[in-house]
Each structure stands twice: as C-alpha cells, then as structure tokens.
Simulated scan of single mutants.
Amino acid sequence: MKNYLAEMFGTFVLVFIGCGSAVIAGGDVGFLGIAFAFGIAVLAMVYAIGPVSGCHINPAITVAMLLAGKINTKDAIGYIIFQIIGGILGAGVLYLIASGLVNYDIAINGLGQNGYGIGSPNGYDMQSAFIAEVVLTAIFLLVIFGVTHKDSNTKFAGIAIGLALTMIHIVGIPITGTSVNPARSIGPALFVQAEAISQLWLFIIAPILGGVLGALIWKIIKPVG
C-alpha cells in the first residue's frame, strides 16, 4: 500500500504541476515553460518517491515494466489504479484553484487536457496525434530503461528522465498537449468532458502501445549480462 500511495501522490504532483503550468501560468511561460514544468515535476518525484515505488506515475511505464518482468501483475494493477486516482485528484485540486479566478471558464480555458483536431493546440489531426503519442512514449521508455539499467549511473537517472520528458513535451505540446501518460490524460478529461472525453481513447491506447514498443526495442538493444 505504501507503494500504491506513493504512485498516487507522484501522479497527483505531475498533473497538478504540469497541467497547472498550462492553466495558471501558460500565458506567461508558454509551451517551453510548460514542458519544463512537466519535466521538473517528474525529476522531483523520481527522487522523492523513487526509493518507495520506483516512481512510475504512468500506466504506460507500469505496463512496460510488467512486460520487462520488473513488476508483477498484482502490483501493476494496483499501481495503475492509484495512478489514475492521483491524476483525478491532481486535476480536481487544480480545477478548484482555477475556478477561483473570476473569468475562468473550464469550457474555454480547459484544464490542460489532451486532444487532436479541434482539441489540438495547433490543429493536428488524429493520425498525427496517434503517431506522435506512440513514438514519444517509446522514446521516453527507452530513456527510462537505459538510465535505470545496472550498468548506468543511476544516481543521475532522475535528471535524465526529467529532461527526457521535457524534450518530449517541447515536441508534443503543439500536437496534442502531450500525454504519453493515460493517467495524466484521464484526470483533466473527466472534468472538462465534451471533446476531451470523446478523444480520451487515443491518450489511453497510444501511450500504452508506445510503452510496449519501448519495452520491445529495449529488449533487443539492451546490454548483455
């Protein structure tokens, strides 16, 4: 249960800080600032809860670790459930704060939700969104597998993982707002509803497929021994 609660807290922080940077500070920091907010949130959580749960805070990562034999099925299910709960709580607290602004309207200002077509920040279509989410998640998983390998200097793993998520967001935000994490997408979508809910399937399936792809590629290229 400590592991599950750590995953819930870590996902809460990721959604609250990452999506919060978009909703509350987006006009001031822009896409680059939002990208760094997500990256720094993950970097901080790697060192805060990594010793407890491994800091997956992402169902796509948990599925990839399950395929790699680094977590059992029971714990994988528990991780994913509590990650989703954390994402919902993060979005909920963010909504409570954002709604305190007089001219805030969730239908107009959103909650940092992901989308394609009319839901895409720059109008990218469903195909572009799907490909981007699969590829970006696969890249993220390859970094995670690499920097946590026993032959790597794992003391710096959090920095590499945080910067990897930052670079992924720099490319992904204009396309979909960047998910690469179903729990990060589910939380805001449940509050925003409308297109965010109807498009949510993509931000569940594509990151999971990307995680699987990343695990398979790592299995081929990983160091022997």
Rank of each mutant, 00 (worst) to 15 (best):
M1A: 14
Y4P: 00
E7H: 15
M8Q: 08
F9A: 15
G10W: 06
T11Q: 12
L14S: 03
A25K: 05
G27S: 11
V29C: 02
G30A: 11
F31T: 12
F31L: 13
G33H: 06
F36W: 12
A37V: 13
F38H: 10
L43F: 14
A44H: 07
V46I: 11
A48Y: 12
P51M: 05
S53A: 14
S53V: 13
G54C: 03
C55E: 14
C55Y: 13
N58Y: 12
T62L: 10
T62F: 11
V63C: 07
V63I: 12
M65N: 14
L67D: 11
L67P: 11
L67V: 10
D75M: 12
A76W: 03
A76C: 03
I77S: 09
I81G: 06
G86S: 06
L89T: 09
G90V: 00
A91M: 08
G92Q: 02
V93M: 14
L96R: 07
L96K: 10
G100D: 09
G100H: 08
V102S: 15
Y104L: 03
I108H: 15
N109E: 13
L111A: 06
G112F: 07
G112R: 06
Q113R: 08
Y116A: 01
Y116L: 01
G117C: 00
G119Q: 15
G123T: 04
G123I: 05
Y124V: 14
Y124A: 10
M126Q: 13
F130T: 09
F130I: 11
I131Q: 07
T137E: 01
L142K: 04
I144T: 08
I144Q: 10
H149F: 07
K150F: 09
D151I: 06
N153I: 05
F156Q: 14
G158L: 12
I161D: 04
A164F: 06
T166I: 06
M167H: 15
M167Q: 14
I168R: 07
I168A: 09
I170S: 00
P174S: 02
I175E: 06
S179M: 04
N181Q: 09
P182L: 00
R184F: 07
S185H: 00
I186Y: 09
A189S: 14
V192Y: 02
V192K: 03
Q193S: 15
A194M: 06
E195K: 11
Q199I: 05
Q199P: 08
F203S: 09
F203T: 08
I204M: 03
I204H: 00
A206T: 04
I208N: 06
L209D: 02
V212L: 01
V212N: 00
I217K: 01
I221V: 11
I221W: 05
P223F: 09
P223S: 10
